[in-house]
């Protein structure tokens, strides 16, 4: 499998805390990689490092390399804004822009980059909403405020906003943990469809979700990558005892 994102000896420090310790891992292109592990294992920290979200955190230090198609995203002269356009992120809580319509939310990323023709904008809105299977539900009320949507719809809207700028990689931090089971299944179904076009890295606390949606699973513990393998192997016959204890609910 082609690797899209590659972490090479990634370390993240917050002040005196060594949160991510020498992680080296490949995220294959057009696949879903799930990152699992107990709270505090560094999984969200790793995810955030991939689109340079620690840049603004006081006391945060990132070392090692993160390659996006051979380009070190922490390299000299690399613009973090350009990186974030190629590496989108979806958060745990749906966060549509509250003062904007559904239409404007989808196109918000584009608007930041300057004006565009209305028909062009409409086309991006329609395509993006179709890709997240929201178009049929909202096409007659695109001017409505985004906050009128249900939680599950809001999350799909946020994913539409992320893919509207045509990223290569989508990072998802617990994207379904604030949603009801049906909305969760819709998001999972969507992830399955999105991987045809994008490389997806998802952090989840829900191990069954990792087992359902991912092709590859990485298990982190105390800031270290313990094991990374195809999902079937991780959930049936993992190599490391720590992994096995965690996925079977025996972690001490």
């Amino acid at each position: 499998m082609n690797s899209k994102v590659k972490l090479d000896d990634l370390n993240v420090h917050f002040g005196g805390t060594h949160a991510v310790k020498g992680v080296t891992i490949d995220f294959p292109a057009n696949s879903v990689t799930a990152i699992i592990g107990p709270s505090g294992c560094g999984k969200s920290t790793v995810l955030r490092a991939i689109n340079r979200m620690h840049d603004m955190t006081p006391g945060a230090r990132v070392s090692g390399r993160i390659l996006l198609d051979e380009t070190d995203i922490y390299g000299r002269g690399v613009d973090p804004v350009a990186i974030r356009r190629r590496i989108g992120m979806v958060f745990q809580k749906p966060n549509p822009f509250p003062a904007m319509s559904i239409h404007d939310n989808v196109i918000a990323g584009y608007k930041l980059n300057g004006r565009m023709r209305r028909d062009e904008a409409d086309e991006i809105v329609e395509t993006s909403l179709q890709r997240v299977a929201l178009w049929d539900e909202v096409k007659d009320r695109l001017k409505s405020n985004a906050m009128e949507l249900s939680g599950g719809q809001q999350q799909r809207l946020c994913i539409a906003r992320t893919i509207a700028v045509r990223p290569d990689v989508i990072l998802m931090d617990e994207p379904a943990s604030a949603l009801d089971p049906i909305s969760t299944l819709k998001i999972e179904e969507l992830i399955e469809e999105l991987k045809e076009r994008y490389t997806i890295i998802i952090v989840t606390h829900n191990m069954q979700q990792a087992a359902r949606v991912s092709d590859v699973t990485a298990f982190f513990y105390l800031g270290e990558l313990i094991e990374c393998d195809v999902t079937k192997k991780i959930f049936t016959t993992p190599d490391r005892k720590q992994t096995e204890d965690y996925i079977t609910g025996r972690f001490g």
Binding site: F235, T237, P238
Partner: peptide, 9 residues
């Protein structure tokens, strides 16, 4: 329980 790993086996 949706068993995994050795429990699933």
């Amino acid at each position: 329980r949706q068993p995994a790993g050795r429990d699933l086996r």
